[in-house]
Nucleic acid binder design. Structure first.
Lengths: 153, 153
DNA sequence: CAAGATTGAGCCCTCAATCTTA
DNA sequence: TAAGATTGAGGGCTCAATCTTG
């Protein structure tokens, strides 16, 4: 059961990150960050909130945003309310990039999942995984936007 | 749905690898390899088969076995039937190590999963994940031993 | 030429420590 | 003292190329 979770995730990740890189030139981490920012109000999010929403640690997020900034897809702004925190903000170029990549990637997800599960089974799986995640990572439950975007996948 | 799979796996992995390292001094990759060898006939497996059973690529497996060998938990032997392939073999020390670690880690898995899901739900989740994995990584289905070991988890 | 295993190069992540502000 | 973010050190993984054997 635990092994299955790891294996299925790893195998799926292999296939999908390959396609994501080939079609859109993005890593999974970049994709995660850009999707979150794209859905966020005003296209901006605090670094620590972003870290809580993705599979990255705060440290990993810092490095990822460094590279996204160097690539021109994101910029950092300092928070007006709290001088300790900084905000990651999507640039117009980053916006274009994720808006192009998203529908392509969603189609790939459909392809892969559609072969294995029916629509009803996908819903059951999603529900069980949500419960699992919420138990292990409560922080993510608050900002739960992925499945809005990916619910048909 | 896709996001949930990644998130739940990542969050679970964080928690469990922490405990595995603290209690048994093993990484998840080492644990995977040792479990597979422990269950294999004669405690030995070809490198490529081992790679197909774990979340590692052939390349990653080579490095991991290098380190396991340096740690004295595994040794390499050349295959008698095919001079191209080598076999990873569990040492007595490796055997002790995994036999100590396994029950501890299974308890941790129970702790974490038990909070989130009922026994019936775990079975459903396992079945769905198995189908998903088999669709994406057919190679793993052949050597499907994890859930024997972890079915109660 | 294909299969099995390995290595060289490069990338990126994590932990722990550090710096700044609340 | 804690929260937010970052960096220094170290480790490990992947891809692509290579070497050996079938």
């Amino acid at each position: 059961m635990l092994g299955l979770l790891f294996e299925s995730q790893a195998a799926l990740l292999r296939v999908l990150e390959r396609r994501l890189d080939r079609d859109s030139g993005l890593s999974v981490q970049w994709f995660e960050v850009l999707v979150r920012l794209h859905r966020a109000p005003d296209n901006r999010l605090r670094m620590s909130d972003l870290a809580a929403m993705t599979t990255l640690t705060p440290s990993g997020l810092t490095r990822a945003v460094d590279r996204l900034e160097a690539a021109g897809l994101v910029v950092r702004e300092s928070s007006p309310s709290d001088r300790r925190s900084s905000l990651a903000v999507l640039t117009p170029e980053g916006r274009d990039r994720i808006e192009t990549a998203l529908p392509i990637q969603l189609r790939h997800v459909d392809d892969v999942l559609g072969d294995a599960l029916s629509v009803e089974e996908e819903l059951v799986l999603a529900e069980l995984l949500r419960r699992l995640r919420d138990a292990v990572k409560p922080a993510a439950a608050k900002a739960d936007t992925w499945q809005d975007e990916l619910s048909t996948s």
